[in-house]
Design a protein around this nucleic acid. Structure first.
Lengths: 203, 203
DNA sequence: TGTATTCAATACAGAACTGTATCCTACTCC
DNA sequence: GGAGTAGGATACAGTTCTGTATTGAATACA
């Protein structure tokens, strides 16, 4: 049928990778198609042979990133769920583990969030992804609470939402002021208190 | 000396206002100078007679917005500090009061934060503004804790940082999913617990 | 080995945007 | 009421970007 796609798919991957870097540096609007191609080592010919437009690439990039993220999560879940560490170590560990380059990830993520706040289609895609992400975290929280004899006094998902909110808000501050707010400071100072407040021994 | 500046300054103000709207809709990069002028009811002639470039306008807009924000805060502080409500009501009230249009404010704010993460000059300006903002909040917190016989077990500024982180993270979720996360939900669910955990009766 | 096909490079046309230089209008001040 | 000027509109030149049409090289396959 269609055997020889190795060249093409490799090109696509390199273009996506280049786009990720350039988007992080200059934002979606700030990066031209040419910029992306240059970074990936191609000309625009390659680009338009693989994508219809920059918007299409943005969407593809989001999907690719999302897929990879969810895979990673699924891979990490069993390990974290059965580890000795505390609940919060597992959850925060997952949040960090899946974003090796905090800065780049935050830039892209913020950029796409902003995009989603303006474009309903993007919003739907993003919300779907975030829902799956939350679900994984929620399952993790539920597993650990069960096996460690704890019980939450609020729905696990609500708790997860709070952890995510703190994580994102705190990361923003850490990136803006690395000196004053070393990464993880706020999370590790305050989240244990929240957990303490919403959990009790079960049974 | 230089009497007739009324026309000019009014034009500047309208351009800034137009820029605010257009930036919120399309982002800094996505909005052209022409877009801004059109929104304000001018042509590019007026723009370049008032600003050197779009970057210069962005900076001016940031300064103007910042100044107005800090003024508002200073005006609200005494009232809030001496009000009957709780500490958190005062703090969250201040955070909300100063941003009548949550959505637009968040968009602009996120946009500028993203800008600052890429441009050291913008970062310095933003950090300076945020520092002043935090300082006001910190003073408010200190005043209220004192007069209400409370004592914090962590530095007030650290507590304020946490409140801000939660507020920003939560607002992002609220704007993305207004149905699932009505504005204020996370803050009002979890922040009282945090406060409870880090405060005790003084003396 | 020859032929067909895939895919990226190149060349090109057109649109959008920026910034400047000039013009025109309306106010200011005498 | 007339000269001077401030400030916005208009016209224009140059750049940058996008998207398409064509070309050319490498690969698959017979």
């Amino acid at each position: 049928m269609e055997p020889p796609k190795r060249r093409r798919s490799n090109t696509r991957a390199r273009l996506l990778e280049g786009a990720l870097e350039v988007f992080a540096e200059r934002g979606f609007h700030g990066a031209s198609v040419e910029d992306i191609c240059e970074r990936a080592g191609f000309t625009r010919g390659a680009f338009y042979s693989n994508f219809g437009s920059k918007d299409e690439l943005v969407l593809a990039l989001f999907q690719a990133t999302t897929d990879r993220l969810l895979e990673q999560i699924e891979a990490l879940l069993p390990e974290l769920a059965s580890q000795p560490g505390s609940l919060l170590d597992a959850v925060l560990g997952l949040l960090d583990e899946t974003a090796p380059d905090q800065r780049q990830w935050h830039l892209i993520s913020a950029e796409f969030t902003l995009h989603a706040l303006r474009d309903p289609d993007a919003a739907e895609a993003l919300n779907k992804q975030r829902a799956m992400f939350r679900e994984s975290l929620t399952r993790l929280v539920e597993q650990i609470t069960e096996t460690s004899g704890l019980e939450l006094t609020v729905p696990a998902e609500q708790f997860v939402r709070m952890v995510i909110a703190v994580h994102e808000g705190a990361r923003s501050q850490s990136l803006l002021e690395p000196e004053e707010v070393p990464a993880g400071t706020l999370e590790h100072t305050f989240l244990p208190m929240v957990l303490e407040a919403v959990s009790r021994p079960s049974r």
